[in-house]
Structures are given as structure tokens and as C-alpha cells.
């Protein structure tokens, strides 16, 4: 079982290894300018230094905290808004124009105006991330709520369920697969906005460091931080898939 999964990974890892080897040779033979692209082995050494010295911990934690806080706030608002809009027609009529106006704006473009109002501190960064997270979660929640089976809702009615109990124990779990799909999209956006907000605010976290290293011509460090960011993205995605599978454990496994 394990050996088979390792075997299925092998071709992909081989391609990755070949690219790194090719890059190494390209730099050694002078094909690629060393100033722009240090050899992978040199980057690996720099990365090792960052890891061994523990220097990576504070910036990584700073970015993670930003992503988690923004993601949590944006998701909570998105779920609450989607539930309210999906369930109460009056709320839908009230908020739909606003949502449709805000939704297509790339949230990255909102960071500069947000800086005007909120400065360059944590509030601005968290708000940027939360705004990016909010809309995909809200729209998916809305769709999930509206798709709740009529028969299921009638079953709750004939047993005398009230609105609050129905929303909490029927509509929310019924919409959960949709909500989680929206949150998965939002997680990627959260990371993008976190890095961008850090870059524009010029302080704290992995995004700031990548830009700062590039400006200081510390190219190896830049790549090393980039790799740490990539691993963070990978880990967050893996963590989310795990949580999603746990939340939807009741679904019959089709494969």
C-alpha cells in the first residue's frame, strides 16, 4: 500500500530532480547568470542556515497568524452572510446588489485604499485577507443553502423544528460541502493577499522578506524564503483537505 503510493510519486519526483540538476548545470556552465539564479545547492545551503538558526520561525509564524486570522474572520462572515441571504429573502434583496458589486473586484486592488484608512499595521492586513476570503465563501454558502432539499425541510417542519434549530442542524450541514468548496478556493486567495499586504506594507512576514531580499540583492535568501512560503502553502492545503475529509466523513466513498 505504502510502497505503491511511493512508486506512483516516483515519476513526478524524478522530473523535479532532473530540473534541479539541469538548473545546477546551467548555472555552473554559465548558461544562466549566477547573480539572478544561484545554483540550487547554494540555495539549499542558505535555506539550511535559516532553518538551523531558527531565523525562519518568527516571519513564518507572522504570516501564518495573518492567514489564519483573516481566513477565520472572512469565513465566519461569509458563512453567516450566505446563510442569512439564502434563508431570508429580505436579506437577499438588501445585500445582493452590494455583493454583486464587490465580488468581481480583485481584492488585491483594494489593499492600497485600505492602507489609506487602516494604515500599514495588522488591521489592514487582516482586513485584506478577510475580504478576499469572504466572497467565495459567501457565494458558495448561499448556493448550498438554496439547494437544501425541500423534502428534508418539510421533514423538519412536520416534526416542529424552529428556524434556529433548522438552520443550525439541517441547512448548515446540508450546505457544508458547498461551504467547504468555497473555503478551499478562499484559502489560496488568503495566502496571496497575505503576501501582497506584507509586501505593500513593508513590514513583517514572508512576503515582506521576499521583496526585501530582492531589493537588497540577497538573491539566495530571496529564493530560500520563497521555498519556505511554498511549503507553507502546501501544508495549509494538505491540512485543509484533511479537515474537509473529517467534516464530510459521512459521505459514501466513491473511489
Amino acid at each position: 500500500m505504502l510502497s505503491r503510493s511511493v512508486l506512483s510519486w516516483l515519476p513526478g519526483l524524478l522530473v523535479l530532480g532532473l530540473i534541479l540538476l539541469g538548473l545546477e548545470l546551467a548555472v555552473e556552465t554559465g548558461w544562466v547568470r549566477r547573480a539572478l539564479m544561484p545554483p540550487p545547492t547554494a540555495i539549499a545551503l542558505t535555506l539550511w542556515d535559516l532553518l538551523a538558526s531558527g531565523e525562519f520561525v518568527a516571519p513564518l509564524l507572522s504570516t501564518m497568524e495573518l492567514v489564519f486570522t483573516g481566513f477565520a474572520i472572512g469565513s465566519a462572515l461569509g458563512i453567516a452572510g450566505g446563510l442569512a441571504m439564502g434563508w431570508f429573502p429580505a436579506v437577499f434583496r438588501l445585500l445582493e446588489p452590494l455583493v454583486e458589486l464587490m465580488r468581481p473586484i480583485p481584492k488585491a486592488a483594494l489593499v492600497p485604499p485600505l492602507m489609506l484608512f487602516l494604515g500599514i499595521g495588522t488591521t489592514m492586513k487582516v482586513t485584506s485577507v478577510a475580504l478576499a476570503v469572504l466572497f467565495p465563501v459567501l457565494v458558495n454558502t448561499l448556493q448550498g443553502v438554496r439547494g437544501t432539499d425541500r423534502v428534508m425541510l418539510d421533514a423538519a417542519r412536520t416534526h416542529g423544528w424552529g428556524t434556529a434549530h433548522t438552520l443550525r442542524h439541517l441547512v448548515l450541514p446540508a450546505a457544508l460541502p458547498f461551504i467547504l468548496a468555497g473555503m478551499r478556493i478562499s484559502l489560496g486567495l488568503a495566502l496571496v493577499l497575505a503576501v501582497l499586504a506584507e509586501m505593500l506594507s513593508g513590514q513583517g512576514g514572508l512576503g515582506f522578506l521576499i521583496l526585501d531580499m530582492q531589493r537588497s540583492f540577497l538573491i539566495r535568501q530571496m529564493y530560500a524564503w520563497l521555498i519556505i512560503l511554498a511549503v507553507l502553502g502546501l501544508a495549509l492545503n494538505g491540512l485543509f483537505l484533511l479537515a474537509e475529509r473529517r467534516a464530510l466523513h459521512w459521505q459514501p466513498q466513491s473511489n
Binding site: D149, V151, A155, A156, H159, G160, W161
Partner: peptide
């Protein structure tokens, strides 16, 4: 009311016990 479509009236994320508890839990 007992529905014709039991596949749609039972909650798929609840086990059988919790589906029956549905009637009085509130």
C-alpha cells in the same frame, strides 16, 4: 408526515440513531 422519498427525507450526514432522534431532539 411520512414521506415517500425516504432517501431525501433522512439526513445523510446523521447515523440512524440521530436520524430518529431528529423527531424530538429540539
Amino acid at each position: 408526515y411520512v414521506f415517500q422519498q425516504y432517501t431525501r427525507s433522512l439526513l445523510p450526514w446523521r447515523n440512524v440513531r440521530d436520524n430518529v432522534a431528529f423527531a424530538v431532539e429540539h
